[in-house]
Amino acid sequence: MICVLTNHHMYDKLIQITAKSNVMMNELLKDHTYTRLGGKADFYVTPETYNQVQDIIKLANRENIAFTMLGNGSNLIVKDGGIRGIVMNLQKLADIKTVGNTMIAGSGARIIDVSREALKEKLAGLEFACGIPGSVGGALFMNAGAYGGEIKDVLKSTVVVNREGEILTLTADQLDLDYRTSNIPDNGYIVLEATFTLEHGDYDAIKGIMDDLTNRRETKQPLEYPSCGSVFKRPPGYFAGKLIQDSELQGKQIGGAQVSLKHAGFIVNRDNATAKEYIALIHFVQDTVKERFDINLEREVKIIGED
């Protein structure tokens, strides 16, 4: 744990870079994750400009302090002990603009909102994203997808900051986008913005697809409880939810965490679960499916923080 003196020293340094309203000490991360799980961040910072992002990274490097990037917390479990050092959220970099058939969106914009803006502009290609709760940055990080579409289908380029605080413009091909993966985490990139290439289309046709996907999502997914979304990647030739259902695990509960009765691929925070309970249930599901079907369920959700 960072000592109190270091905490105040670091706080002073951070508010020199960005406004006081953008720096919080000992912020509870459960207030910033879809699962409603997670302990405190030493510093929770929400910069408003690209330069502030650069300066915060350079400060972390200079002071040798841990640095963690947090999207909008939709595909993430933060452990109960929280996260040491600086946690940065780019929710204030959320501008979305349209130029012809391209859309440029800030990292902190919700990908749902980008898909809705595309609809307004009669642009097709992002319909699949109308139910994905993550940020643009998070969507690139894991090449988010749903209903047969994925980010790599429409991404043209991205602007990122590297570990040294330098801004780079990369094409989609330079990100090694594959099923629920990219090279963004390995390279330590932080996404600042993304440019999508879409196609001019018919408003009613685009809206029809989005309405259908929204209806399918709302009727099949347990949106009434906090969750991280789909917990596991799809094993080749199988569906994770079906394997879990066939393992008779629906309704299985550890503490306040439960395998959803509505969709077995989801684990919900049914009753004030701790991260420890939620993670224990993930492991139980993996072990049971392995025992029953000899298939390894690989996590799609990311787990970070301290116990």
Rank of each mutant, 00 (worst) to 15 (best):
N75F: 05
A105G: 03
K97T: 13
F141S: 08
L119V: 04
V99W: 01
Y147P: 04
G81P: 09
G145V: 04
F141N: 15
D80R: 13
L126E: 03
T68C: 11
I65Q: 07
A146C: 08
G149D: 03
I111Q: 11
E127D: 10
Y147A: 04
G106C: 06
V136M: 14
N72V: 14
G100I: 09
M88T: 07
N89S: 15
G106Y: 05
G131V: 15
G82M: 07
A139I: 06
K97I: 06
S135G: 07
N64Y: 01
A109V: 08
A129K: 12
N89W: 05
I104N: 09
A118K: 02
L140A: 06
P133C: 12
S107A: 15
I86F: 02
L119P: 02
A109H: 03
L76Y: 06
N89R: 12
M69W: 09
A124E: 15
G125W: 10
A124L: 06
N143A: 07
F128G: 03
K92V: 00
I96V: 12
D113P: 05
G106P: 04
G73F: 12
G81D: 06
I83H: 10
F128N: 05
L76I: 12
K120N: 14
A66C: 01
K92C: 06
N101A: 13
N101S: 14
G138F: 09
G73A: 13
K79A: 08
I104G: 01
D80L: 11
I132V: 10
S135I: 06
L126Y: 03
A105K: 03
G137V: 13
K97V: 05
N64H: 10
A105N: 02
I65E: 11
I96K: 01
V114S: 05
V136W: 10
T68N: 15
C130D: 08
S135T: 10
N89K: 15
E117F: 12
K79Q: 14
L93V: 05
R116I: 02
G148R: 01
I65A: 04
G71S: 11
S74F: 10
S74D: 00
G125R: 10
L70K: 03
G85F: 14
G100R: 10
L76E: 07
V136N: 09
G145F: 04
A118Q: 03
S135F: 05
L93C: 07
E121A: 13
K92L: 13
G131K: 13
I104F: 04
P133G: 09
C130K: 04
A144C: 07
G137L: 12
G137P: 08
S107I: 11
L90V: 09
L70F: 03
G131N: 15
M103I: 15
K122M: 12
V87E: 06
G108N: 10
R110W: 02
K97D: 11
L126R: 03
T102A: 00
I112C: 06
F128Q: 03
I96P: 02
E150W: 01
I132K: 02
V78F: 10
V87H: 05
V99K: 11
A109Y: 05
V114H: 00
V78I: 15
